[in-house]
């Protein structure tokens, strides 16, 4: 195994612009292939099984009474169930999905912009207190969202912003992890010479950032965007604390309201399951589509 690791280290991608080294050709023993592959297959099964269960359970006529197994039994009703869920309560579920999409897209876009600007500034400008600022932001990664929910709620209620979209949107644009990643990446990917050249050509600092630097930082930005998108999409606590109007709920909170009714209306249990399936689809699509960038971006940040 040790030679395999060395080989992997040798072939670590260089910074953007540099070409990839060719992987040395080496014969691998059967065991060396089977063992890791077998492990990965098991791990994949372990993670996919709940997803598969979700698909099967969403296709049933009713939960509970018709079995809890991992294969389809009885009529296949997935699409019928989906249309039932979308129509329940005057289509409130569609609204929740749209809200989630709005919160996550806005939070991820603006959050990425802020993080890239902050990370870039911290990487490329030397000013007194730079490390102090960076360390404070880094400390923000360690503060759990749970601890911030109540102070955020009290702040929002000071300006009468609770129970409004802004109460969820504004805190969603902050990503300390994104700033960290952008700084690391900008330090490595944006050469000082290039900035010098841009300045000599008369570009303002803003122009240099938006036309030159931001393009070089693109892989990191995709990573930050996806990361923030997932965080906001899955956020439950912040909307729970801020919102009372269920027309403003994201899909996480909406499903939770349905789930608290299952002890009174049994049919809702099926809606919760089908709704959960629908609510992860956008994330699955986003991952499959942007997977390439996600992977490169993460490893770039990790290696430097």
């Amino acid at each position: 195994m040790s030679t395999a690791i060395e080989a992997a280290v040798e072939t670590t991608p260089r910074p953007p612009g540099g070409g990839r080294a060719r992987r040395p050709v080496r014969r691998q023993s059967l065991l060396e292939v089977l063992l890791p592959t077998g492990f990965m297959v098991l791990a994949a099964l372990y993670f996919l099984l709940p997803l598969w269960w979700l698909v099967v359970a969403s296709s049933r006529e009713r939960t509970g009474s018709s079995g809890t197994g991992l294969w389809f039994d009885g009529p296949f009703r997935l699409f019928r169930n989906i249309s039932d869920v979308l129509a329940h309560n005057d289509g409130i579920f569609v609204r929740w999905l749209a809200n989630s999409f709005a919160y996550a897209t806005f939070g991820a876009l603006v959050g990425t912009l802020f993080a890239s600007m902050a990370g870039y500034a911290l990487a490329k400008y030397v000013f007194p207190g730079r490390e102090a600022v960076f360390n404070i932001i880094l400390a923000g990664v360690l503060v759990p969202a749970t601890a911030l929910a109540l102070p955020l709620f009290l702040l929002a209620s000071l300006v009468d912003a609770t129970d409004s979209m802004w109460a969820v949107l504004l805190p969603s644009t902050v990503s300390p992890f994104g700033v960290y990643l952008c700084r690391i990446y900008a330090a490595a990917a944006v050469p000082d010479e290039l900035l010098e050249a841009a300045r000599l050509d008369g570009a303002s600092e803003f122009r240099a950032f938006f036309t030159v630097s931001i393009r070089l930082m693109a892989p990191a930005l995709v990573t930050v965007f996806l990361f923030q998108f997932v965080v906001v999409w899955n956020n439950f606590l912040l909307p729970l604390v801020m919102l009372q109007d269920n027309r403003l709920y994201p899909v996480t909170l909406g499903l939770a309201t349905w789930n608290s009714q299952v002890t009174r209306v049994a049919d809702i249990q099926l809606y919760v399951i089908v709704g959960a399936l629908l609510s992860i689809l956008p994330l699955v699509i986003a991952f499959l589509a942007l997977q390439r960038f996600w992977r490169t971006g993460l490893s770039e940040g990790a290696v430097k």
């Binding site: 439950f236 009372q244 269920n246 909170l253 939770a256 789930n259 009714q261």
Partner: peptide, 13 residues
């Protein structure tokens, strides 16, 4: 306004 169950979060709210 319809909210989540008490022990699921509304009591905290």
């Amino acid at each position: 306004k319809e909210v989540v169950g008490g022990n699921d979060g509304t009591y905290q709210s």
